[in-house]
Design a protein around this nucleic acid. Structure first.
Lengths: 275, 275
DNA sequence: CGGAGCCTTGACATTTGTCAAGCGAGGTGG
DNA sequence: CCACCTCGCTTGACAAATGTCAAGGCTCCG
């Protein structure tokens, strides 16, 4: 991985670099992020402050939490933990993108989620799960904070407001999951793909001259995982979208050209109402 | 609803009757529960103590929580709240069975969950959801405790340990939901039905001479909702199971004759390994 | 410039939802 | 106590959606 210390700008970790915007049509347009070297304390504090969990805490409290965490820089495609590993740490992303994937019985891994700075993962929400159910790996250079489960629980006990925030967050995820369960049996692959793309755009989309770039390398198989389908089916849907100029995409990259059209595609087609 | 303090039987709404236990084969074998009249404090305390959330609290703490709750008795099939209603109360079931159903865009309701005593529902886990996403109704006579969301949050702030328990619980549900999402695209309807039946047996099964009775009136449509399928498909699977003497069922009732076989049916069929 | 790997596309198999008809359990009224 | 009627359950036939298998083609990297 590229280590680069020109870095001392004002916002070290956030400095997104020097890539030339997409020009030619069929070239990979993903923007590279310069690796965030070590995370100095101010950066860590900012990351923590940005994480919804810790909002409302004052600086001294953040600092205290920060001291309980340690930092680690990961190379792209570096593995963080595997499903089945003992789960006793929590992670907070300071910079970068992390993917979670579920390993099914037959050994194939399917992408289940992509995480961005501020997201918390690992021994989920401090629950007593002994082992990880998913595997986590970096997609790009990452800087990640870690904290032991025990320390985290202590923080929650000492800061009930944080506990409530975490609870709200987890509950929110639960709602989304339940919604997904419902949608999954109702919606078509096309709808699910559209929904997936919009969610990704929300999370890691970047406005460019051509449209909203999903700034992370995603293969068809990855999208298939997120949309709960197969690479082939996703490919067909994407081809359709491409024909309608709704998206443009290539090998591991995607740009949304017309998000509204995607939103429409999200909705179910109403039965031909016989006036 | 009619409230009446002769308390014992013969209450129009509650005493759904004096049914005779299952004898002949094709008769409805559900056992009726006599309504638990008003919930006196000791009962409420016991319910609270049984709820995993409040385990570890001492009596005085339970009592304090208890005073913040109020009790209500519901008739069978009584509606508790509708999807879309303002959500600012939590409910804990003291006695009875409650069903949650999701109302889809076209207005049809599908069963999503069945709750038993000790289960908490409503404004889930005190999260900031303004309106209910599901509808709740009783299946049988019920006694239900209620607490305002605000009071509940206060309790959580004052008892961080409770907050952590709630967090663990919600996180557990999240895990299950995520698992379900994964299973749903992988598993067949048959597998899902089998899983559903086993879960129900776990939750509200009753050992009888003939097998494990699911002691709650469930139609094919209800099972279809839980298994994320359609009544017809469920019916076909059930017919298969009946032929193999794995279950017996009729109009709104089900008995599991051979749970092991169901567990087997849960597993995916491995590809015919050559040689 | 060449190769590996990802993407696309076609053909096909399978599962499952949909529509429709008919049966029968179980409650009701005579 | 019996016959009737309603509503849920069953079953068949069919269509649609999507997963599977397989064969290229194109991108991107070295």
């Amino acid at each position: 991985m590229t280590q680069d210390d020109q870095g001392q700008l004002n916002h070290p970790a956030l400095n997104a670099n020097s890539f030339v915007p997409p020009k030619g049509r069929r070239t990979i347009p993903l923007r590279e992020v310069v690796l965030p070297h070590e995370c100095p304390e101010p950066v860590r504090l900012r990351v923590l402050g940005r994480a919804p969990y810790f909002q409302g805490l004052d600086i001294s409290e953040l600092r205290e939490i920060s001291t309980r965490m340690n930092t680690r820089v990961y190379a792209p495609n570096e593995h963080i933990y595997n499903a089945g590993d003992e789960a006793n740490e929590l992670f907070v992303i300071a910079e970068g993108r992390v993917k979670l994937s579920q390993v099914s019985a037959d050994g194939t891994a399917t992408l289940t989620d992509i995480l961005v700075p501020g997201d918390l993962f690992g021994a989920m929400g401090a629950l007593g799960q002994p082992t990880h159910l998913q595997s986590a790996a970096t997609l790009v250079p990452c800087c990640i904070l870690r904290i032991g489960q025990h320390d985290f629980r202590q923080i929650l006990e000492q800061h009930p407001k944080v506990a409530l925030k975490v609870l709200d967050d987890v509950a929110g995820r639960l709602r989304r999951a339940q919604q997904d369960i419902g949608d999954q049996s109702t919606n078509t692959v096309k709808q699910r793909v559209a929904t997936t793309l919009l969610r990704l755009a929300d999370k890691l989309g970047e406005q460019t001259a051509e449209g909203i770039l999903l700034n992370v390398p995603l293969s068809r198989a990855d999208l298939a995982g997120l949309a709960r389908s197969t690479p082939e089916s996703v490919s067909r849907v994407m081809s359709q979208f491409k024909k309608q100029n709704v998206v443009d995409s290539g090998r591991r990259w995607t740009i949304l050209l017309n998000p509204e059209a995607l939103t429409d595609a999200t909705q179910a087609v109403l039965p031909p109402l016989s006036d």
